[in-house]
Design a protein around this nucleic acid. Structure first.
Length: 423
RNA sequence: GGAGAGGUGGCUGAGCGGUCGAAAGCGGCGGCUUGCUAAGCCGUUGUAGGUGAAAUAUCGCCUACCUAGGGUUCGAAUCCCUACCUCUCCGCCA
């Protein structure tokens, strides 16, 4: 949610900065609604003040034995007028809010212009791409061959885009998320185990609702949704609170493992094979809530925290800055970590590290007091560290051997009972 | 799931339908005092919106907020309904 004041002061500037996203915005209607709302509010609040003060006349009249009936009749009329105006203002406010909640965050100045992922800017690469002396199998084929990954059973038990892991793969997935949580905790993130369902208010706070309801799984007859990411519960821990002692360089940091549920509406035909795009996947998430000053540095360090995991797992990757057109609704800037997948011969997203500036904080009502006692909105950031399923995929593909086995990266061996090979 | 009780400001806790934004205590902040033991005394102490001035961090006025949303009433923290949440007992379950 943008600062409405920003819009009132210079809507043209906001529109210009939003244009980086590749869509144009017309704020005439929202500004007109805002103007009309304020006009109405001023009017009926004045009338209400009048009603309140004359209301106090009634007991006085009655006490002195006078007839209060004419006054009461007049006030009744006034009350009806006010109710009408209030209703009108409420309707306008609803329309205003609907439009307002639909405006995406303003990209930061260094976000590259562009339409889609082809326009993302590569920032750096890490690792050496392995030269195979055999044709590397896809994780999918390798998983089937080893009998540890079954799409068929996923379909049998749920539907398409669900996968069942068994044996060594199931254990590897568990090892990975333990590894990630341990490393993140060691870097100062508090480990959280949140509910895997969240209510509409939380999802509005982080920006999934109201616009992207189609991407979510909703529980029937309940105000509950399966979370699409741990970002939702983690960021909303502090919703509607005023933080004390939020100083630059001292962010609040959370990490959590959760499964993530996404309906992936509109992704038919994309990554239909294998374990890359699922309705349910495991992810370990990082969330920071920080003072607006220094939030740039927090974004960099959060990204580095995610990168550190890939490095320990010896998985080559690159970092790209998403262009305006590829940027998520709530994000002001996103760095994607893309891991190398040899069987696909390309880099694929494995982590997404974003800063939301004060966009989510305003929606979720997270505030802090500055030394002058004034209420301000902190910045929120988050990133995957990492998408566990895709990490498993990357390990399968990068660390496979010619005889159909997988080398466990040394950092992970303590989590795999010390074994060096998957099977 | 069944039966009952309850949700008041940072916390504890009062509050006959009418000067209640809300007593009191604690905590917090400011000041005074400083020798009877980090105590005593005095003062202060919410948030949001609108509006008018100062012309960004200041002040005045108005409005709203006693879980939320509706209702009754000239007027509601106070009465009614609904939702949510909490607690107790029973049942059930990991």
């Amino acid at each position: 949610m943008l600062d409405l004041d920003l819009l009132r002061r210079d809507a043209a500037d906001v529109a210009r900065r939003l244009a980086v996203r590749g869509t144009s915005f017309d704020f005439a209607e929202i500004l007109e609604l805002d103007r009309r709302r304020r006009e109405l509010v001023t009017r009926f609040e004045q009338r209400r003040g009048e009603l309140n003060s004359t209301s106090k006349e009634v007991p006085r009249l009655k006490k002195s034995g006078q007839d209060a009936e004419p006054l009461i009749r007049r006030m009744k009329e006034l009350g009806e007028t006010i109710a009408g105006e209030e209703r009108a203002a409420g309707e306008i406010e609803e329309k205003l809010k609907a439009l307002w909640l639909g405006i995406p965050n303003i990209p930061l100045a260094d976000v590259p212009a562009g339409k889609d992922e082809k326009d993302n800017r590569e920032l750096r690469r890490w690792g050496v791409l392995r030269k195979f002396d055999f044709a590397p199998l896809s994780h999918d084929d390798l998983g089937k061959k080893l009998g540890v990954m079954s799409g068929e059973l996923g379909v049998k038990l749920a539907k398409a885009r669900f996968t069942l892991l068994r044996g060594a793969a199931a254990r590897l997935e568990r090892a990975l998320l333990n590894f990630m949580l341990d490393r993140n905790s060691a870097r100062g993130y508090e480990e959280i185990l949140p509910p895997f369902l969240a209510n509409a208010s939380c999802l509005t706070g982080t920006g999934q609702l109201p616009k992207f309801a189609a991407d979510l799984f909703k529980v029937e007859n309940e105000d509950l949704y399966l979370i699409p990411t741990a970002e939702v519960p983690l960021t909303n821990i502090l919703a509607d609170t005023v933080l004390k002692d939020l100083t630059p360089g001292q962010p609040l940091r959370y990490t959590a493992y959760t499964p993530c549920f996404r309906s992936e509406a509109g992704s038919y035909g994309k990554d239909t094979k294998g374990y890359l795009r699922q309705h349910q996947f495991n992810k370990v998430e990082l969330v920071k809530i920080c003072h607006p000053e220094g939030s740039e540095a927090e974004h960099e360090s959060l990204t580095h925290d995610a990168e550190a995991l890939l490095q320990e797992l010896e998985l080559p990757y690159r970092v790209v800055s998403l262009c305006g057109g590829d940027l998520g609704f709530s994000a002001a800037r996103t760095y994607d970590l893309e891991v190398w997948l040899p069987a696909q011969d390309c880099y694929r997203e494995i982590s997404s590290c974003s800063t939301f500036t004060d966009f989510q904080a305003r929606r979720a009502g997270i505030r802090f007091k500055d030394p002058g006692g004034k209420s301000r909105f902190p910045h929120t950031l988050n990133g995957s560290a990492l998408a566990v399923g895709r990490t498993l995929v990357a390990i399968f593909e990068n660390h496979q051997t010619g005889d159909g086995n997988v080398v466990i990266p040394p950092a992970l061996r303590p989590y795999m009972g010390g074994r060096e090979m998957l099977v």
